[in-house]
Design a protein around this nucleic acid. Structure first.
Lengths: 230, 230
DNA sequence: GCACTACTTTGATAAACGCCGAAGTGTGGA
DNA sequence: TCCACACTTCGGCGTTTATCAAAGTAGTGC
């Protein structure tokens, strides 16, 4: 009677301490190298490699080659949601304190993902850049239009310098809390850096959460037409 | 720093073939006796008993005594959602027989996901409620509009009572067969309950599949403008 | 070419866990 | 009271699998 999908496979993949540790570290949406994942799971690289291969095989992760590094990331937003759903039922009945719920909201609103901005703000910015014709979805990346280049440079980001680096220029990065993509790569990092320089956003100490300043709300609306609630 | 990696416990519980078979049979939301669960998992009662104890311990199931029988059911709606979410990312398994294919089709068309309706019908209803302006996507929940509240109450669901409960009011639940979201939470459950009361849908014995009655087809079209094939 | 780094493959080991037979507990009916 | 039934607990057996050491592959820089 047991019907279609092979829920057993994915669940047992997630149900191993080392693999779960790696998955939790990938929940930010960024891609991480195998060695880094081995470190966070506290296992040797060869063991990690075996786990990673299984998770790719099982459709949880995808890998990207980049020189002698191998970057792994969650295969899609559904994987992130499944992990979140498991997290929801895993929490021991410990009552979710208001404090914790607040932290979670803050994190969903705006956070750094590696070195670029993610969460509601990150996705809103990315969406707006698309609808303004600055960037355009192009496979796993974004491409920057001619007008877009001018606009971004005008915003204070030295675009030309970025394109020289070996790093991916404008990557799509999975945002699991919004189930959408946001702008990553060297362009995403540079834009985010500019937001910090302008003091439109500032780090909330002790984590990855980010606060949008009063000038930030005004600036984002004036410069890009982004209206944020709150 | 990493928050509760207790996800491992629940995931490894689900990641066993016998336990997964039992859980899938409980996804309909009904309570089943231990013996029946042993049968569907094709294991001896003593093995099943051990599994069931672990799942209760792990917070996936609750048990109710009834004479010399012991009924088990899913602990809460979140468990159902997690199972659906895992289904959504699980690679489809090869279908062996025509019979199995038929069952699968029926399940894809309409089924209960713990206590609310899922499948093609569940998603169609949810979509229609959105386009009618009754509900609106809002983060990982739905929000109910003023007109929506009136409309739902008019449909025979005591909305005000639901909002008092501690449970999530209108949750988005990932639908594995449609790869979309359907309405869950106490509102989803109440609407589904109303559909059962009106006899627009009825359970197909022996599983979580649901049949849409002749009145159901007519009613769903008249009340919401939902046109279902078949 | 050579060393260095990042990662994978192979093979062996040890621990974990699902499984069933046998025996135990508690309920319901004659 | 006795037996049937539903389920659980206990003890052992066997398979699965996570783990690391050692060796292999491939990209990078001198």
């Amino acid at each position: 009677m047991e019907s279609n999908p092979n829920i057993v496979g994915v669940a047992s993949l997630i149900g191993d301490p080392s693999r779960a540790a790696m998955l939790m570290n990938l929940l930010g949406g960024e891609a991480l190298p195998a060695g880094e994942l081995a470190r966070v799971a506290r296992i040797t690289p060869q063991t990690a490699s075996s786990h990673l291969a299984k998770m790719v095989e099982g459709g949880l992760l995808v890998h990207e080659f980049c020189g002698r590094h191998r970057y792994y990331r969650l295969a899609n937003a559904e994987v992130g949601q499944a992990l979140e759903a498991l997290n929801a039922i895993a929490l021991p009945k410990k009552i979710r304190s208001l404090r914790e719920s607040d932290q979670s909201k803050t994190l969903r609103f705006a956070r750094t993902c590696y070195d670029h901005i993610a969460g509601e703000v990150g996705v809103a910015l990315t969406d707006r850049l698309i609808s303004l014709g600055v960037i355009e979805e192009s496979g796993r990346d974004f491409s920057l239009s001619q007008e877009g280049l001018a606009r971004i440079r005008n915003f204070g980001v030295p675009v030309e310098d970025l394109q020289k680096t070996r790093r991916h220029f404008a990557r799509q990065c999975l945002d699991w809390s919004e189930r959408r993509h946001h702008l990553a790569g060297s362009l995403g990092a540079a834009v985010t850096g500019r937001l910090f320089d302008l003091e439109w956003i500032s780090r909330i100490p002790g984590g990855r959460a980010v606060r949008v300043t009063r000038e930030g709300f005004k600036g984002l609306e004036a410069e890009f037409g982004i209206k944020l609630r709150r």
